[in-house]
Deep mutational scan, measured.
Amino acid sequence: HERALMVNRLQKLTRMLRVHPDPKWKQEQQELIKRLK
């Protein structure tokens, strides 16, 4: 369940980064990718 939330968050971040590349979001995205591996 928590994994699904993280995947959701990651997808949302990816969409937001396409619109507005924010370093903070980029960092969070990298963190999520690490944790999901």
Results as ranks from 00 to 15, higher is better:
Gln30Gly: 05
Ala4His: 13
Lys26Cys: 05
Glu28Ser: 02
Val19Thr: 13
Gln11Leu: 14
Pro23Leu: 06
Gln11Asp: 05
Lys12Trp: 15
Gln27Met: 11
Leu17Ala: 03
Arg9Lys: 04
Leu32Arg: 00
Met6Gly: 02
Met16Arg: 04
Met16Leu: 13
Leu32Cys: 02
Glu2His: 09
Ile33Met: 04
Arg35Pro: 00
Leu10Phe: 02
Arg9Thr: 03
Glu28Asn: 01
Lys37Pro: 02
Arg3Leu: 14
Lys12Ser: 07
Arg18Cys: 15
Leu32Phe: 02
Lys12Asn: 06
His20Ser: 10
Leu10Ser: 00
Asn8Gln: 15
Leu17Arg: 02
Glu28Gln: 04
Leu32Ser: 01
Leu5Trp: 15
Gln27Asp: 07
Leu17Asn: 03
Pro23Trp: 05
Gln29Pro: 00
Arg9Tyr: 05
Gln29Met: 15
Asp22Arg: 08
Gln29Ala: 14
Lys26Ala: 09
Leu13Ala: 01
Val7Ser: 03
Thr14Tyr: 09
Lys12Gln: 15
Glu2Lys: 09
Gln30Pro: 01
Lys37Phe: 14
Pro23Thr: 05
Arg18His: 04
Met16Lys: 05
Val7Leu: 15
Gln30Glu: 12
Glu31Ile: 09
Lys26Val: 11
Lys37Asn: 11
Asp22Thr: 08
Leu13Gly: 00
Arg18Ile: 07
Lys34Ser: 08
Lys34Trp: 07
Leu5Met: 14
Lys34Pro: 01
Pro23Asp: 04
Glu31Cys: 14
Arg9Cys: 09
Trp25His: 07
Ala4Tyr: 11
Pro23Ile: 05
Glu2Asp: 10
Lys24Met: 09
Lys37Glu: 06
Pro21Met: 09
Lys37Asp: 06
Val19Tyr: 13
His1Tyr: 14
Leu5Gly: 09
Leu36His: 00
Gln29Ser: 05
Met6Trp: 06
His1Phe: 14
Trp25Leu: 15
Leu17Trp: 00
Lys34Gly: 06
Leu13Trp: 00
Ile33Tyr: 06
Pro21Asn: 13
Arg18Ala: 13
Asp22Ser: 09
Pro23Asn: 07
His20Ala: 06
Trp25Pro: 01
Gln30Ser: 08
Arg18Leu: 10
Leu13Asp: 00
Met16Tyr: 05
Leu17Thr: 00
Leu13Glu: 00
Lys37His: 10
Glu28Cys: 02
Met6Gln: 04
His1Ser: 13
Met16Ser: 03
Leu36Pro: 02
Pro21Leu: 06
His1Gln: 11
Gln29Tyr: 14
Arg3Val: 11
Leu36Asp: 02
Leu36Tyr: 02
Lys37Ile: 10
Glu28Leu: 06
Arg18Val: 04
Gln11Ile: 15
Leu10Cys: 01
Val19Glu: 10
Glu31Arg: 08
Lys26Thr: 05
Glu2Leu: 14
Arg35Ala: 11
Val7His: 09
Met6Pro: 02
Lys12Phe: 15
Leu32Ile: 08
Lys37Met: 14
Gln11Thr: 09
Lys12Asp: 07
Lys12Met: 14
Lys34Glu: 09
Gln11Phe: 10
Val7Gln: 08
Val19Met: 12
Leu17Gly: 00
Gln30Trp: 12
His20Val: 06
Pro23Glu: 06
Leu32Gln: 00
His1Ala: 13
Val7Met: 14
Pro21Cys: 08
Pro23Gln: 06
Met16Phe: 03
Arg15His: 09
Pro23Gly: 05
Leu36Ser: 01
Arg18Tyr: 05
Thr14His: 07
Gln11Met: 14
Val7Trp: 15
Leu13Thr: 01
His1Trp: 15
Leu13Lys: 00
Asn8Leu: 15
Met6Leu: 13
Lys37Ser: 10
Glu2Met: 12
Lys26Pro: 01
Lys24Leu: 09
Leu5Asp: 07
Lys24Thr: 10
Pro23Lys: 08
Val7Tyr: 14
Leu10Trp: 03
Gln29Leu: 15
Gln11Ala: 13
Leu5Ala: 14
Leu32Asp: 01
Arg3Met: 08
Arg15Met: 10
Ala4Leu: 12
Glu28Val: 04
Gln30Val: 08
Ile33Trp: 06
Arg35Lys: 13
Glu28Arg: 03
Met16Ala: 04
His20Met: 09
Met6Asp: 04
His1Asp: 13
His20Glu: 03
Glu2Ser: 08
Glu2Ala: 10
Ile33Ser: 02
Val19Asn: 13
Ile33Gln: 04
Pro23Tyr: 03
Asp22Phe: 09
Thr14Lys: 10
Gln29His: 05
Trp25Arg: 05
Thr14Phe: 06
Gln27Val: 07
Leu10Ala: 00
Arg9Ile: 06
Thr14Ala: 11
Pro21Glu: 09
Gln29Phe: 13
Glu31His: 06
His1Gly: 09
Leu13His: 00
Met16Val: 02
Thr14Met: 08
Leu36Ala: 02
Gln11His: 12
His20Ile: 09
Asn8Gly: 10
Lys37Tyr: 15
Thr14Gly: 05
Lys26Met: 11
Gln30Met: 12
His20Lys: 11
Gln29Thr: 07
Glu28Met: 05
Val19Phe: 13
Asp22Val: 06
Met6Arg: 04
Leu13Cys: 02
Arg9Asn: 00
Ile33Pro: 01
Glu28Gly: 01
Leu17His: 01
Arg9Gly: 03
Lys12His: 12
Arg15Val: 07
Thr14Ser: 08
Arg9Asp: 02
Leu10Glu: 00
Lys34Tyr: 07
Trp25Ser: 03
Arg3Pro: 02
Met16Asn: 02
Pro21Arg: 07
Leu13Ile: 09
His20Arg: 11
Arg3Tyr: 14
Glu2Ile: 12
Gln11Val: 13
Glu2Cys: 15
Arg35Glu: 05
Trp25Gly: 05
Ile33Gly: 02
Pro21Trp: 15
Trp25Thr: 06
Lys37Gln: 15
Ala4Trp: 14
Pro21Ala: 10
Arg15Ala: 12
Leu13Gln: 01
Ala4Lys: 14
His1Glu: 11
Glu2Gly: 06
Gln27Arg: 12
Lys26Gln: 08
Leu17Phe: 02
Leu5Pro: 03
Leu36Met: 04
Val7Ile: 15
Leu10Met: 02
His1Leu: 12
Trp25Phe: 10
Gln11Ser: 10
Lys24Glu: 07
Thr14Trp: 08
Leu13Ser: 01
Gln29Gly: 01
Gln30Tyr: 09
Glu28Asp: 02
Leu17Gln: 02
Met16Gln: 03
Leu13Met: 01
Glu28Thr: 03
Arg9Trp: 07
Leu10His: 01
Lys34Cys: 13
Leu17Tyr: 03
Pro23Val: 05
Met6Glu: 03
Glu2Gln: 11
Leu13Asn: 00
Pro21Tyr: 15
Arg9Ser: 03
Gln30Phe: 06
Gln11Lys: 15
Arg3Ser: 04
Lys12Thr: 10
Arg18Phe: 05
Lys12Arg: 11
Lys12Ala: 12
Lys26Tyr: 10
Met6Val: 06
Ala4Asn: 10
Gln27Leu: 14
Leu32Gly: 00
Gln29Arg: 12
Pro23Cys: 04
Ile33Asp: 00
Met6His: 03
Arg3Asp: 04
Arg35Gln: 10
Leu17Lys: 01
Gln27Glu: 12
Glu31Gly: 04
Arg35Val: 08
Glu31Thr: 08
Leu17Ile: 08
Arg15Gly: 04
Val7Asp: 02
Lys24Trp: 05
Lys37Thr: 11
Lys24Ser: 08
Ala4Val: 11
Leu32Thr: 01
Lys34Asp: 03
Leu17Ser: 02
Arg15Thr: 05
Lys34Leu: 10
Asp22Met: 05
Lys37Arg: 14
His1Met: 14
Gln30Lys: 06
Asp22Tyr: 09
Arg3Phe: 14
Met6Asn: 02
Arg18Gly: 05
Leu36Ile: 06
Lys34Gln: 11
Arg15Asp: 07
His20Trp: 11
Leu17Met: 05
Asp22Lys: 11
Glu31Met: 13
